[in-house]
């Protein structure tokens, strides 16, 4: 029993070379600077998309290397992606719904203001 457990130690965890850690950290810092620069520049409406793409790149770097997903069991990565997918569905449905009923909210607000002005 103890023999087999001794032998299995090699499988537990994955030691990441320091050089990779440093490179990843460097990339993350660079991307942060990039996101600040693009955030201040006028991107002709693509600001949000650019910011989100950069953030996703950063997130992927953290996931793949710092969180070892690149070397880990694929199942753990799947769990994580699954959670993000669920959030995506949730977000899409609610945002779609809220956008479609905004009209009634705007009507109401406009009328409310009109009534206030009448009252004055």
């Amino acid at each position: 029993m103890s023999d087999s457990s001794h032998g299995s130690e090699g499988h537990i965890g994955h030691v990441l070379p320091l050089s990779i850690l440093i490179k990843v950290f460097g990339c993350l810092v660079a991307l942060t600077i990039l996101t600040v620069i693009t955030g201040k520049a006028d991107m002709y409406g693509a600001d949000l998309a650019v910011a989100m793409i950069i953030a996703t790149c950063k997130a992927s770097l953290v996931c793949l290397f710092f969180m070892h997903l690149k070397y880990d069991r694929p199942f753990h990565g799947m769990i994580f992606l699954f959670s993000v997918m669920c959030v995506g569905i949730f977000l899409a449905f609610v945002a779609l719904d809220a956008e479609s009923y905004q009209e009634h909210v705007k009507d109401f607000k406009a009328n409310e203001i009109a009534e206030q002005q009448l009252g004055e």
Partner: peptide
């Protein structure tokens, strides 16, 4: 079960589009 929650909200003021979906 995760994509059906809106059937509790057919008359809640949810948009008609979402109710149908």
């Amino acid at each position: 079960s995760f994509i059906v929650w809106g059937h509790h909200m057919f008359i809640s003021g949810q948009s008609d589009l979402m109710s149908v979906i």
